[in-house]
């Protein structure tokens, strides 16, 4: 059982137009998504830009209004309650935190690092200035930053360092779930390795769960236990890392996997042929995998953990 459950989540944006600027239709950014995250595990969310993966992350933390559906946190219904600071939702607010993609724009340029990291602490716990500083030094130590970073401003750091400050801020209040939205896609390879290692270390240390949102399948594979592949606002395939990478069933998953550049130049031609074949299958068998409105079908269980969006009559794709 997961400690956070998302049930039939929908986030729709109205399209306005016509005479009185009335609502004509909706963009279904997230369209009926259900999943849960277990304590201490990493749930990977993969999809192309526009597939709705970030919207899911944002709606969990309350930056996006949920149209319908429910979020349960420890059995408590917290749908659209993420901004209620007081009372019984405080725990949810404190224990779900987020790391953003762009480290430069996600910390206030006018604040010193001590104030950037102190913000959640001041929000949620009542510490004296002395205790607060001690806590911040502890956090900086966890993310491997020197003490003199305290009184510097965000622009004085490199991208990787800023991202680590973002992580320090996210873990400041002992969260249980961190939503990491493309945390390393703006970073260089070696810096990315640093941030990823470090995220895994603190996961072990604090028994954290991650909702890891990324378009990079290599990174997601490295980090995640379970993976969901998204397309057009819906899940097309859900499964353990192993199931997704070694036994992909949905054509979209196959297409995504075949598009990853192969690191071995010897297999180049072979890989290209495979990619073209999958691409052809994708265009040809679209009706097999999507309904008339190009909507992804509902998920059907293949095994206990492996779910695939196939045509309801059971004849989806080739088995």
């Amino acid at each position: 059982m997961g400690f956070i459950e998302i049930k039939d989540l929908n986030v729709h944006y109205p399209i306005r137009g016509g005479f009185f600027n009335t609502i004509q239709d909706h963009v279904r950014a997230v369209d009926g998504v259900t999943f849960e995250i277990e304590a201490g595990k990493t749930y990977g969310l993969v999809g192309e830009s526009g597939s709705g993966k970030t919207t899911i992350g944002k709606s969990i933390i309350g930056l996006e209004k949920i149209t319908s559906g429910q979020i349960f946190y420890d059995g408590e219904d917290v749908t659209n309650k993420a901004r209620k600071r007081s009372g019984k939702y405080e725990e949810y607010n404190r224990e779900v935190q987020m790391i953003f993609q762009d480290s430069a724009s996600s910390s206030n340029p006018k604040k010193r690092i001590i104030d950037v990291i102190a913000e959640p602490i001041r929000n949620f716990s009542k510490l004296t200035p002395g205790e607060e500083k001690k806590r911040i030094l502890e956090l900086l130590d966890i993310v491997g930053m020197p003490e003199d970073a305290l009184y510097k401003y965000p622009h004085e750091f490199s991208g990787g360092q800023r991202q680590r400050i973002g992580v320090a801020r996210a873990v400041a209040c002992q969260p249980k779930l961190i939503i990491a939205d493309e945390p390393t896609s703006a970073l260089d390879l070696s810096v990315q390795a640093q941030v990823l290692n470090f995220m895994r270390n603190i996961q072990d240390q604090f028994k954290l769960s991650y909702l890891f949102i990324s378009h990079d399948l290599g990174v997601v594979k490295h980090m995640s236990d379970d993976i969901a592949i998204m397309h057009r606002g819906r899940f097309v395939e859900v499964g353990s890392k192993n199931e997704i990478f070694n036994n992909p069933q949905h054509i979209y998953t196959k297409r995504l996997l075949s598009a990853i550049p192969d690191i071995n130049p010897r297999d180049r031609e072979q890989h290209k042929t495979l990619r073209k074949a999958v691409e052809r299958e994708y265009t040809e068998s679209e009706s097999q995998y999507y309904d008339e409105n190009k909507r992804v079908y509902d998920l059907k269980p293949l095994t206990d953990t492996h779910l695939v969006a196939l045509k309801p009559d059971g004849k989806g794709g080739d088995f």
């Binding site: 390879l189 070696s190 990315q192 390795a193 290599g218 990174v219 490295h222 990478f245 990853i260 690191i263």
Partner: peptide, 11 residues
């Protein structure tokens, strides 16, 4: 080092 710091997709 660069090659080594790359997360791989192949098993």
């Amino acid at each position: 080092s660069l090659l080594n710091s790359m997360p791989q997709t192949s098993d």
